[in-house]
């Protein structure tokens, strides 16, 4: 089936958080944010800490609910999807890479990727085959049986990239993927991410402070005063 070109569209998305856990006057984080992202393109969202970059990514992926606005993923309004459909969408069409990698700590590198494939519907055998191939692609073939605590930060991120790509998603959400890595490892992860995204024609939504890293994307947005502005 031919996939539509537009992967993600945000229209007038707003989000606020209560000032304290007990409530109080809400703090507005996003206000009327609109943007769109096409297949095989990449966007970077930059901005100062606390500006709402991660919140924007989480709302776009349906990990956090927006107060108002429309979020369409591959033409589907995700704010109206039930848990089962949204979960299916996340497992098959979205990939996630977070700053702290967030692997399943009790599982090996191979199992982390394999579980993601199985959740998306692959059989155990198929999941194993795809996971091995992905881990080889990210250069982790020698660390298959290692658990999260036996891997370095860079290695964990490479496993997270393999996990994010194993189900051939249409869009990768990457939230500061190199934020906790040293310069050398950050460069390795950056190169790997961009080469795989280009090779597999996947869209990328990148959240980063690093302007050099951001500049490798097709479009760079800056989050300022609760809304996005095109930076370059």
């Amino acid at each position: 089936m031919m996939k539509s070109t537009e992967v993600l569209t945000l229209e007038a998305v707003s989000k606020s958080f209560p000032a304290t856990l007990r409530g109080g006057e809400p703090i507005q984080i996003l206000e009327g944010v609109s943007l769109s992202l096409n297949r095989s393109t990449s966007i970077a969202i930059t901005g100062r800490s606390g500006s709402g970059k991660s919140t924007l990514l989480q709302i776009s992926a349906g990990l956090l609910s927006a107060d108002s606005g429309s979020i369409r993923f591959e033409g589907k309004e995700i704010t109206k999807l039930d848990d089962e459909h949204l979960s299916r969408l996340r497992s098959r069409s979205m990939g996630f890479i977070f700053q702290s990698s967030l692997l399943l700590d009790d599982f090996t590198a191979l199992e982390n990727v394999q579980i993601s494939a199985m959740i998306a519907g692959s059989s155990e055998k198929e999941a194993s085959r795809k996971s091995l191939a992905m881990l080889e692609l990210v250069g982790m073939q020698d660390r298959l049986g290692h658990t999260s605590d036996q891997l370095s930060g860079g290695e964990r991120q490479r496993v997270a990239i393999a996990r994010a790509l194993v189900n051939e998603p249409s869009l990768i959400f990457a939230d500061e993927p190199t934020g906790s890595l040293d310069e050398r490892n950050a460069a390795l992860v950056e190169d790997l991410l961009f080469s795989l995204v280009a090779e597999r024609e996947v869209a990328l939504m990148l959240i980063t402070h690093n302007l050099a890293f951001a500049s490798r994307c097709n479009t760079v947005y800056q989050l300022h005063n609760r809304n996005v502005e095109v930076r370059s």
Binding site: D83, E84, L89, F96, L104, S116, I119
Partner: peptide, 15 residues
């Protein structure tokens, strides 16, 4: 709890 959140992120339903 964090693992539950991760499993949900990669597409496991609440049920």
């Amino acid at each position: 709890q964090t693992e539950i959140a991760m499993l949900r992120t990669i597409g496991l339903t609440k049920a």
